[in-house]
């Protein structure tokens, strides 16, 4: 699936930048370490916006396009920020046949963002994930570390209410 690019403004802090610079310094001159630097960058910022990819590219002396190509190839890299509450809806086979697509659509309806997006206030992000190994509870969604199973569309609003602050 083509990755969605966030248009939310970049809000990186000087502390985050210092951390990334340290990671780059450790790996300077070793182009083979690019992937690992990108993983660390995502660990620091939560995602890889243009500003972060540019820092990585300059630091590792590669074109930004090379970084972007990698970021869009591997599923683990995100181009959109994660919200305070990360909502993941499992679209694995078992959950899907039990109607998880409809759960996903319902969440989109309520919080106003689609998969791979983050709300402008940074509160919620939504993603469709692959099997999380809880097929017995299908259909399943998670919010951060909390797991909710055997759901119907009617349950969605109630779950979201728990994550307001």
């Amino acid at each position: 699936m083509k990755k969605r690019i966030s248009n939310l403004p970049f809000t990186g802090t000087p502390e985050q930048e210092a951390k990334l610079k340290a990671v780059i310094a450790e790996n300077k001159g070793q182009k083979s370490m690019l992937l690992s630097v990108m993983q660390e960058a995502q660990g620091i910022y939560g995602y890889l916006p243009l500003e972060v990819q540019t820092m990585v590219a300059e630091g590792m002396d590669v074109p930004v396009e090379e970084v972007y190509g990698i970021a869009t190839f591997y599923a683990q890299f995100a181009l959109t920020p994660k919200g305070k509450y990360k909502i993941s809806v499992c679209l694995g086979t078992a959950c899907y046949v039990k109607g998880s697509q409809s759960l996903l659509d319902k969440i989109t309806e309520i919080i106003g963002i689609g998969p791979d997006e983050c709300t402008a206030d940074g509160k919620y992000s939504l993603e469709a994930c692959r099997c999380i190994g809880a097929c017995g509870l299908a259909p399943v969604l998670t919010v951060n570390e909390d797991v909710y199973g055997r759901l119907t569309n009617k349950d969605v609003a109630g779950i979201l209410k728990k994550y307001i602050d």
Binding site: M1, K2, I5, E65, Y68, T72, F73
Partner: peptide, 25 residues
């Protein structure tokens, strides 16, 4: 492009969506 030390085009996304483009398309 890469041999010209420019490298502004490359392979983006994967599978059926794979296409040649620039950073952030």
């Amino acid at each position: 492009c890469s041999a010209q030390h420019v490298g502004v085009i490359g392979v983006n996304d994967r599978g059926f969506d794979t296409h040649i483009g620039s950073a952030f398309d």
